[in-house]
Amino acid sequence: MHISDGVLPTSVALGCYGLTAVLNGVGLWRLRDHTEELPKIAVVTSSFFVASLIHVPFGPTSVHLLLPGIVGALLGPAAFVSITVGLLLQSLLFQFGGITALGANALMMGLPALAAAYAFPRLRGRTRTSHAIAGAICGAGGTALAAVNLAILLGTAGESFFGVAKIALIAHLPVIVIEGVVSAFVAAFLFQVKPELLRP
């Protein structure tokens, strides 16, 4: 779920922009000697963008995938830059998330990706099963973290929005399960087919 324009107080929206700029600056600074990485990150970003267009059926409705865990596992510290660019494009092309809320949305999705970038290499182990478990933890945990971030951000808009924040949290429960399972299969697939893509 993306936060649209007009929800967050201006101070929160601007503060999130500042923090997002700092985290992007750190990410780009770490890439400064590897400019050949940029086109790669761009292409991977568009593959995540395309992946987010997939709607998985869930009973009578459907949910779309976000995969913050897999973004982190594949891109490592560059994940935050990739998520910011992906969300900017989603906002510009589809109006998923408003332009003034871009900083908040980037934090909401980017922090879980960074957490997954930290956790995945430590959890992955050496077998297909252990990769699947690490994928499940990063996928489900990343989505849960994103849902908590969303609820906190909605909560900053005032007491009137607590109800929406709670409903958003509850609505994310099935998404957490689906993300965990799909991320587990993606991690196991990548381990079998092209393990060098998963960062050491």
Binding site: A51, L65, L67, V181, V182, A184, V186, F189, L190, L197
Partner: peptide
């Protein structure tokens, strides 16, 4: 999952 893995 396999579809996305292949896409990546």
């Amino acid at each position: 999952g396999n579809f996305l893995g292949m896409l990546f």
